[in-house]
Amino acid sequence: MSALPNNVLVVDDETAIRRFLRAALEESGFAVLEAFNGRMALELAATKKPGVILLDLGLPDMDGLEVLKRLREWTSAPIIVVSVRSDESDKIEALDRGADDYLTKPFGVEELLARIRVALRHAESAREDAPPVYKHGDLKIDLTSRRVWLGKKEVRLSPLQYSLLAALVRNAGRVVSQKQLLKELWPDTESNPEALRILVHQTRHRIEREPVRPRHLKTEPAVGYRLEAPDD
């Protein structure tokens, strides 16, 4: 972790939220920068070059999505968008505009730290090669030999089911939007969300012990899917 940039820019207009984020992040060894509006966020991002940006979409002076757009014009630092639950379309829009992930309010500290770790690791692995084997609990996916195991048993998947897993492994721990997956799995055809849902459903019945309570392949309601971050 020491090699990673460890300052986090927190953008939120609520003092109580900033206070709790500062406590949680400093406790875990991050330095915290705080901005309480969009203008300040843009300024601090440019001058202090934070390693991660936590961006609340509801800001007093400007639209959070606009802040995101302006940030993405020049920085590739991971941006994790924070929003309330009912704004599914905002989340999708934010992912389309280059956000790395999102957190839904209210969220727990564990969830917050996990998202930051994944975002940092992902930013890191963009420079290096990702490890070829994904392991999470009893699920193992070997990207070099294209083989999948559940416990000791090898799982047989259709090529499309495998492609789905491979796409999710490359983004392990991060949400992958429905749109991204459709583009990746069916690049030449009209996008069909229903086919994707059926594919995920079938894949779950191969790689999950209890498909209705998936341990590995999670649904992000109305947004997309997430394969849990690999075990350390």
């Binding site: 059926i198 459903h201 779950r204 209705v212 649904t219």
Partner: peptide
């Protein structure tokens, strides 16, 4: 949109 009910029950359990 057409959804598998399992998916929705799963989200609720989560």
């Amino acid at each position: 949109e057409p959804y598998p009910i399992e998916d929705v029950v799963g989200m609720a359990l989560e």
